[in-house]
Amino acid sequence: MTDVTGSSGQTTTTSTTSTSVDTGTSEGEDLPPPKPDALTHWVTGDPADADVSPTGPGLILMGGSTDVDAAFTWQTQYLAGGDVVVLRASGADGYNDYLFSAIGGVDSVETLRVDTPALAHEPYVAWTIAHAEAVFIAGGDQAVYMTAWKDTPVEAALMHVYARGGVIGGTSAGLAVLGEFVYAAYNDSVIEDEALLDPYNMYMTMDRDFLALPPLAGVVTDSHFTARRRLCRLIGFVARIVEDGWAPQVLGIGVDKETALVIGPDLVGEVLGAGDVHLLHSNGPPQLCTAGEPLAYAELEWYTLAPGATVTLPTGAPAGPPTLLSATDGALTPAYDCAE
């Protein structure tokens, strides 16, 4: 495994003046729109579109910290030797050499740093994403991702990749934006026990309608799960989504660091890496979920999947009995320490 989230590569940023052109999302188009001057990007490998047909679709849900080599190797079976795009709003090109040389099996890796809605509306950005066989969203700040990318051509281009049979993935903040429901962290991160003490506190900023990936319908995700003691806040996310009428039933997926859940075209997910994947099923509406009051929510089903375990999504019902969790007066039963 390689930790590349904050590393920098050696390739050179290239840019040209942008003009208003059709973004184009069909693989028969050979020439991309001009690159905008404001876009920072890096290309390793052949900069021309590979023009191949991926055989997925697939998803990579990665929990943060050191990346999972096995997950990136897994995706190559669906890419037909095509192109990978790394999408981020900060950082540099640390994934380029890693994915092109260390993992291999692809024609190119291009990192796009898209940190504003203006860049997300650039035709070159949408064209490049849409023509990729895989797109991986790096770690960073999901509030920036949602602010910059939601309701822009980036959103449609990501969905186009998946519909073509490509692979969409993300780690840490990149994982946070993949589900139907998103903990957007618009007011900074919520401390775990705050979610139970007041599920409507100012840090519990939820959002939706960014991506609509079928295996993640009715799903909210969280990363760094065990290391940062995030079970309590995941319960808060699930309670809010049900209470606000966004969905009658919700599945929370928490992924440990150095761990990935990979989901193939058969909708079966497999746990890869060093840690576990945690599934939290809602249990109808919470008994009490209101501003300024501790959450009361009884008998949610919690499953823990070890490396090698599988689950079919979006139902998320693995074999074996669950642990039943209840939230009352800011605490969990069975007892769980929410403090990181």
Rank of each mutant, 00 (worst) to 15 (best):
residue 304 T to C: 04
residue 269 G to E: 01
residue 75 Q to I: 04
residue 266 D to P: 03
residue 270 E to Y: 01
residue 293 E to S: 13
residue 136 F to I: 08
residue 305 L to V: 04
residue 57 P to K: 03
residue 29 E to Q: 15
residue 199 P to G: 06
residue 248 P to D: 14
residue 90 S to H: 11
residue 3 D to N: 15
residue 48 A to W: 13
residue 252 G to H: 03
residue 14 T to A: 13
residue 53 S to K: 13
residue 235 I to W: 00
residue 167 V to H: 06
residue 82 G to I: 07
residue 76 T to E: 04
residue 55 T to V: 09
residue 232 C to W: 02
residue 55 T to F: 00
residue 228 R to T: 10
residue 80 A to W: 01
residue 10 Q to K: 13
residue 100 F to W: 08
residue 27 E to A: 13
residue 276 D to E: 15
residue 202 M to N: 14
residue 109 V to E: 04
residue 256 D to Q: 04
residue 186 Y to H: 13
residue 116 T to K: 09
residue 78 Y to N: 02
residue 103 I to W: 02
residue 6 G to V: 06
residue 3 D to Y: 15
residue 325 L to T: 11
residue 177 V to S: 04
residue 338 C to Y: 06
residue 335 A to I: 10
residue 305 L to I: 07
residue 118 A to N: 05
residue 233 R to F: 01
residue 100 F to R: 13
residue 22 D to S: 15
residue 259 T to C: 05
residue 73 T to S: 10
residue 11 T to K: 12
residue 13 T to F: 07
residue 321 P to Y: 05
residue 78 Y to A: 06
residue 4 V to Y: 09
residue 48 A to Y: 11
residue 243 E to V: 05
residue 325 L to I: 15
residue 226 T to P: 00
residue 79 L to Y: 06
residue 326 S to E: 07
residue 280 L to Y: 00
residue 103 I to S: 03
residue 329 D to A: 14
residue 293 E to Q: 15
residue 74 W to I: 09
residue 202 M to D: 15
residue 258 E to Q: 15
residue 90 S to F: 03
residue 108 S to P: 09
residue 223 S to W: 05
residue 279 L to Q: 06
residue 149 W to I: 13
residue 274 A to F: 13
residue 100 F to N: 09
residue 281 H to E: 09
residue 335 A to R: 10
residue 79 L to A: 01
residue 9 G to M: 08
residue 6 G to N: 14
residue 316 G to V: 09
residue 207 D to R: 08
residue 333 T to K: 09
residue 333 T to P: 03
residue 13 T to D: 15
residue 279 L to P: 01
residue 260 A to I: 02
residue 180 E to M: 04
residue 138 A to C: 09
residue 299 E to P: 00
residue 161 V to Y: 07
residue 254 G to Q: 01
residue 319 A to T: 14
residue 237 F to H: 10
residue 59 L to K: 11
residue 119 L to D: 11
residue 32 P to N: 11
residue 290 T to N: 05
residue 168 I to C: 01
residue 180 E to G: 08
residue 320 G to H: 12
residue 200 Y to N: 12
residue 196 L to T: 02
residue 62 M to E: 15
residue 292 G to C: 00
residue 195 A to Q: 12
residue 37 D to S: 15
residue 24 G to D: 11
residue 322 P to E: 05
residue 143 A to Y: 01
residue 306 A to R: 13
residue 240 R to W: 09
residue 80 A to Y: 02
residue 93 D to R: 02
residue 48 A to I: 08
residue 187 N to P: 04
residue 81 G to M: 03
residue 9 G to W: 04
residue 288 L to A: 12
residue 155 E to T: 15
residue 53 S to C: 10
residue 137 I to F: 13
residue 44 T to P: 00
residue 164 R to Q: 15
residue 265 P to A: 13
residue 134 A to I: 06
residue 64 G to V: 01
residue 192 E to S: 11
residue 34 P to R: 00
residue 304 T to N: 06
residue 33 P to T: 11
residue 225 F to W: 00
residue 120 A to W: 08
residue 274 A to V: 14
residue 298 A to D: 12
residue 133 E to K: 07
residue 305 L to W: 00
residue 136 F to R: 02
residue 96 N to R: 08
residue 247 A to N: 14
residue 257 K to P: 00
residue 327 A to M: 10
residue 253 I to C: 03
residue 181 F to C: 04
